[in-house]
Amino acid sequence: MASTPRPAEARVAAAAVALVGPEPARTLWRIAARRLRRNPPAMIALAFLVAVHLAAAIGPALLPTDPFLTNPLLSLRGSSAEHPLGTDEVGRDVLARLILGARVSLAVGFVAMVISVSLGVAVGAIAGYAGRWEDVVLMRLTDAMMALPTLFVILAALAVFGGGPVTATVVIGLTAWMPVARVVRGEFLRWRVTEFVDAARAIGARDGRIMVRHILPQVVPSIIVAATLNVAFAILTESAISYLGLGIRPPLPSWGNMLQNAQIYIWSAPNLAVYPGVLILCTVLAYNFLGDGLRDALDPRLKL
């Protein structure tokens, strides 16, 4: 069963946009923004992300408590006036550490996601669209990367480039692009043989244009899903590799390493795992709803 995607009108509209120039495009963005504003989950998500990023950016400076100050005699305490979310195993303020830890986690999560998604989309699009030897080379490269033992990739990176948050972020990004590439390629394989692509080709559109203007929009939903899943993956992986000595070093907190350290206190202070866990969950959910909202807002098929 063949599908007949993309209504002819849409193609005409796209062509019109291309012909008439930037003016209608700006209108499209305005329409998109209006649509986004009418999407409550997306707006809540946006508000949450803005709040978290603001807190991460300026919160640590405003906090009265020092996130590094230890006091063993106050370890593993519950909520109190001085410590609204209690203290960790060495008596540090959990709230202050969560706010400071947001910096690393949000940055690593976002940047590593951008790296892995851009790389994955590029590789997948070229392999899927070009086919032939490009597909063979790129997909076998993807296979090889998927098969490498991640732990040793990290240890080797550590040996060559040294530790540090930048190396960590890049390494996470470079070990997470393969699924994106596979998915994007799968979609490109499918869309490149549809009528509207043939039509575009027939009117003389160049390959690059077909890939970006015609096929890529069809693949955006999958890319958004991959991107949100990769944010979660990156935030959680950061903690796993900081254990190996790569990534951020203690006593600097991240949500990931707070979660990791909470492991042994699951019996005496289960909340230590809950706080960073809930924040990671909310962040990933927010990225997801915002992504969904953006997709809808930019979808030419949906009527206002």
Binding site: V136, D143, A144, A147, L148, P149, F152, L155, A156, A159
Partner: peptide, 21 residues
């Protein structure tokens, strides 16, 4: 192609394993 991939993966892994501290 699979044979090539296996060779590449094993060579890279061998190198990385030796590089690791």
């Amino acid at each position: 192609q699979a044979c090539v991939v296996l060779l590449v993966v094993s060579t890279l892994t061998f190198l990385m394993v030796s590089l690791a501290p």
